[in-house]
Design a protein around this nucleic acid. Structure first.
Lengths: 156, 156
DNA sequence: CGGATCTCAGCTCAACTGACATTT
DNA sequence: CAAATGTCAGTTGAGCTGAGATCC
């Protein structure tokens, strides 16, 4: 009965959303054991990579809406993983800083994420994983190339 | 600043969910103009492909939870796109049938979907699209191979 | 003034959970 | 009895919208 799935299973959008749904399932189950969510990881990773940043800038880099950044940072701050401080150069902004416990938590999440990637890509060979990554990157670059990542934040 | 995205953009799970999010965006915007959603299309497509089916079976084939099938079929039936009838051979089941207007709606959605695929895969060559499809299919087959599509529905 | 930032309230969609009655 | 089916109620995560206040 494999020939049954003719319409749906040939649609790239279906394949993408279904595999993404599975990836999302794996990620969330791996994260909820640590009491975190996707947003949390993204923000922590961005903070570790770029250093203290404003919320709006974080939102742009992580593809998270400003309003959602507020809520996520609230939780992270409540858990002591980040700190919200004023930006001396611009009183509109908050400067979000990664704490040491936040950095530790990030390491934990990264470890779990690595396991998820291995699980997710299990059926693919090394070269297949590379081509998949390359193709997805190409797609993403094309479609997010329309909306640049950091338009107004390039150190004015 | 492209070298900035080192951590996130190399994670297959990130790439998958982000491209899927974009695909989902394209699909929903294309569908909402016709007053439909992803669930509706999936169900209509499955009905057109397999003929009259029970709700539980539809859910299994479309990867939609039984409870969500109820709500979606409610809407489709209210719009006259499908019909809910009793199954004479099993009084627990409803037999869902595609109406002619439902079939017409499906054709409309398929046309829009095709445009979305073209838009989504625009940056890829024909062979790249094939390999992407192949890789995603492989992934999906592996991970849904654990949970077969139609376990108890194979004409008992 | 326009534009950016932060915040709040509320919403959609997809997916999932738990419970229940009926029927096989 | 266990298992499947349909139904209902509720929750979650991710993403989005609109509004307001503050500040550059």
């Amino acid at each position: 009965m494999d020939s049954a799935h003719t319409r749906l299973t040939k649609l790239p959008s279906w394949l993408l959303t279904q595999t993404a749904a599975h990836a999302h399932r794996l990620v969330t189950t791996a994260f909820t054991q640590t009491g975190a969510r996707g947003y949390h990881y993204r923000l922590l990773a961005a903070l570790a990579e770029y250093g203290p940043t404003s919320q709006a800038s974080l939102g742009r880099r992580c593809q998270i809406d400003r309003s959602d950044v507020v809520a996520a940072i609230n939780q992270l701050a409540a858990d002591g993983l980040v700190e919200r401080g004023p930006d001396p150069t611009d009183r509109r902004r908050n400067t979000i800083t990664l704490t040491t416990t936040g950095h530790r938590q990030l390491k934990r999440l990264e470890k779990r994420l690595a396991a998820v990637q291995a699980d997710l890509l299990a059926p693919l060979t090394a070269t297949e994983r590379e081509t998949l990554t390359k193709l997805l990157t190409k797609l993403l670059a094309h479609h997010s190339g329309t909306a640049p990542d950091e338009p107004t934040d390039a150190r004015p």
